[in-house]
Write a protein that binds this DNA or RNA. Structure first.
Lengths: 333, 333
DNA sequence: GTGAAAGCGCTAACAC
DNA sequence: GTGTTAGCGCTTTCAC
């Protein structure tokens, strides 16, 4: 197998070992162009023996660009992104495209995002998948001009950036209907400011909109899951019977606080991706991550293959309501 | 900002726009070598205006290798790996090194892993972080000869591969002591075969070892979390009072099955990283992911900086027992 | 302080 | 079928 200085082995060394030219060795290794089967075998064997590892930089430079597509991902510690990441990977394998990932942790101003994008572009990726909410259309636009770009998991304003997102409007309706049907009259919606988390902001808006007619108290959260929980509980003390959260992580924080204070109220969340949702009895909406991921990769693959685009620029996918024990009829007071 | 064909802009274009040579433009942009401050400014401005994005392939080819370190990660859908991923990212940022990630989903024979390693090596990464259990020492060895390699989260047999792992032996002891102290006499240990999940195999071994003296029933699980759950419940029916799992995901599966069947037994898990551990009342061990990640990156950074190695080749970190409601005294029968 | 030229490792016409 | 040649875009001595 690979011997000591295998990384120093160039294709030239392989060629020489077999007694052919570099071009022939290339053909043998890439399996393209006319070449004698026997030669090909000899070259392959030699490459194997020498532990030849092609230098991708050189390969891609010479070949002019790479077929790889870049993925910009947000913090994977969040189960939501971890799941999305995984689905994107699966989809990529299925579509036969290579994925190269760059992640950014929290990044309030979107600077690291832009930097990460440049890094990806520097690698001359063939396409870009943007799976992070923190960067907005205006920051994306200039790059979209260079390479096809698909945003996943968040809607997009620009017509030049494609998007496969979630139908949060509809999700909000599902949740709202349930809350309303159970008889809640005064509820608190825990949402984020657009800068904090665009996704949660959107969800809270959708939810509040769908709850029109009820007494809806809005509470803004910060980046930390526990932000705003205190304010929400105060609303509960003041008579609200349900705390509606824009993510399951927030919902957990609320449940924790409720338990600690010995208080009780209905709660709902959003995402439905945590391993124990069922056991915890969370009421939430399961995001259609698989579909969105699959669609995003398929679209990008189509774009790269120069297929005429047959689907709308922006699409959104519907998940499903997960009824749980956390949402019940309001308790009589 | 970047205009239309910015990806077509080469350093040569920037140089020409300013009326200098390529060499000067390079110096200006990289900020190395002697150059007139005024020229540097003009070049920088021109690059900005033209939206020049340096071609990393060319850069790294010419410069001979990259400072980037490669990370091979297992499926991020698993909260455990997602968390580890995130911690590694954070550590990398702090250490000032760039990370490039390749993930592999499930991969029974370790083939995709090896392929992923080759891909990373093809990019001539300066170092390698291996955060997946599925590939064993003999597969790693040949690559370790080429570039410094640190395995994280799993112990390593080879002396040529560094490792920052978890002290599962100790973790097993903690758990076992608790189980024993509560008075369980007959328990079932749900573990995996080494090929299925080396990590879980190790944990089950540690646990079983620490439980010496009790009546320990071993049940093997498969790749799916529900594999082996039926067998475990059968043991419970036959008199076992606790089901000890090698991961929290398994523990959830057991809890689910227990609830469905209306049966009851104590359970324990391993990992402690799921968002709702506390609310679920899981008994588990919280892995020291942060420490291991930090240590792995720091070690690699040190290796790359040619610092003399001051710590043992293989280290392991201790997490902490998380007592939960799922582990209680055995119920009288 | 700046430019000319060599070359990183590989691929892809185009000859033979 | 196989070898020759000309780059891919950038960095880096080495002169000037």
């Amino acid at each position: 197998m690979a011997d000591q200085r295998a990384l120093g082995v160039r294709i030239e060394d392989v060629a020489r070992a077999v007694g052919v030219s570099r071009a022939t060795a290339t053909r043998a290794l890439r399996g393209q162009g006319r070449i004698a089967p026997a030669t090909r075998e000899r070259v392959r064997r030699a490459a194997e023996e020498l532990g030849y590892v092609p230098n991708l930089m050189a390969t891609e430079l010479a070949a002019g660009g790479t077929g790889v597509i870049g993925l910009m991902l947000r913090d994977a510690a969040n189960p939501v992104y971890g799941q999305l990441f995984s689905c994107l990977e699966v989809a990529a394998v299925r579509a036969g495209v290579e994925l190269i990932t760059v992640t950014i942790g929290s990044d309030p101003r979107g600077e690291r995002q832009v930097q990460a994008l440049r890094r990806l572009l520097g690698m001359r990726v063939a396409g870009l998948l943007v799976a992070t909410g923190g960067v907005d259309s205006t920051q994306l636009e200039p790059f979209a001009a260079e390479v096809p770009m698909v945003r996943v998991g968040r809607p997009e304003a620009s017509a030049r950036v494609f998007a496969e997102s979630y139908d949060e409007e509809w999700h909000g309706h599902q949740l709202a209907e349930r809350v309303r049907a159970l008889g809640h009259r005064r509820v608190v919606v825990l949402g984020a400011a657009p800068e904090t988390s665009y996704g949660e902001h959107l969800r809270a808006e959708a939810l509040a909109g769908a709850l029109a007619g009820l007494d809806v108290r809005r509470v803004a959260t910060g980046p930390d899951p526990t932000d705003g929980v205190g304010a929400a509980l105060a609303e509960v003390d003041a008579g609200a019977t349900a705390v509606l959260c824009a993510s399951d992580v927030r919902q957990l924080a609320v449940l924790r606080a409720l338990a600690t204070r010995g208080a009780s109220a209905s709660t709902t969340g959003w995402d439905g991706l945590m391993p124990g949702v069922d056991l915890l009895g969370l009421t939430t909406v399961r995001m259609p991550v698989e579909e969105a991921a699959e669609a995003a990769v398929a679209r990008l693959a189509g774009l790269l293959a120069d297929e005429p685009l047959s689907v709308p620029t922006h699409r959104s996918w519907r998940g499903e309501l997960v009824p749980g024990r956390t949402l019940t009829e309001p308790e009589p007071r």
